[in-house]
């Protein structure tokens, strides 16, 4: 089944810091939900090992993520694909970053496709799950890009 992905998120960090974070595997591995490992294969391509659970089906997935059409620090196209015995998914989205008064605004839009068991069994909740996973990603990204506050 197809899923539309899109939205906007604002960040308190500057555009260059956000751009760097989005291009840093060490950061991404902490932000992508269920990501166990991210292996740099060169040329802006990475291999992903994921452990995800959707509805009553859970399992490990192997995936790939690649970055293309880069216009630093303003725009980037991200393509993700993953598959496991329980199903497969793929999607691509374009991110654009724009400086604003108190940080950076990110807009993104794209399309995903989910197949296999996950699609069949989880169809009713997949949209919600996708939204939740994307939310988790941004939450983690915000945490990773905000400088830790030293306790007084």
């Amino acid at each position: 089944m197809k899923l539309d992905i899109g939205g906007e998120e604002s960040f308190e960090v500057g555009i260059d810091a956000l751009w760097r974070a989005l291009n840093d595997p060490a950061v991404l591995v902490k932000c992508i939900p269920g990501c166990k490992e991210m292996i740099d294969e060169g040329g802006d391509r990475f291999k992903l090992i994921l452990n995800l659970k959707v509805a009553s089906v859970g399992g490990s997935f192997e995936g790939a993520i690649s970055l293309a059409d880069k216009l630093p620090p303003a725009q980037c196209k991200v393509a993700v694909s993953g598959s496991g015995t329980l199903g497969q998914g793929s999607g691509s989205a374009t991110f654009s970053l724009e400086p604003q008064a108190a940080g950076t605004m990110m807009r993104y839009s794209g399309e995903g496709e989910i197949g296999g068991l996950v699609a069949g069994v989880g169809q009713r909740i997949l949209k919600g799950v996708a939204k939740h996973l994307i939310g988790q990603f941004f939450k983690a990204l915000r945490r990773e890009t905000t400088a830790p506050v030293t306790p007084q």
């Binding site: 089944m1 197809k2 699609a119 069949g120 169809q123």
Partner: peptide, 14 residues
């Protein structure tokens, strides 16, 4: 089936 050829009724839930 959905338009992508995936069977949508794979259990007694559907």
């Amino acid at each position: 089936y959905d338009g992508e050829g995936q069977l949508m009724a794979q259990s007694f839930m559907d």
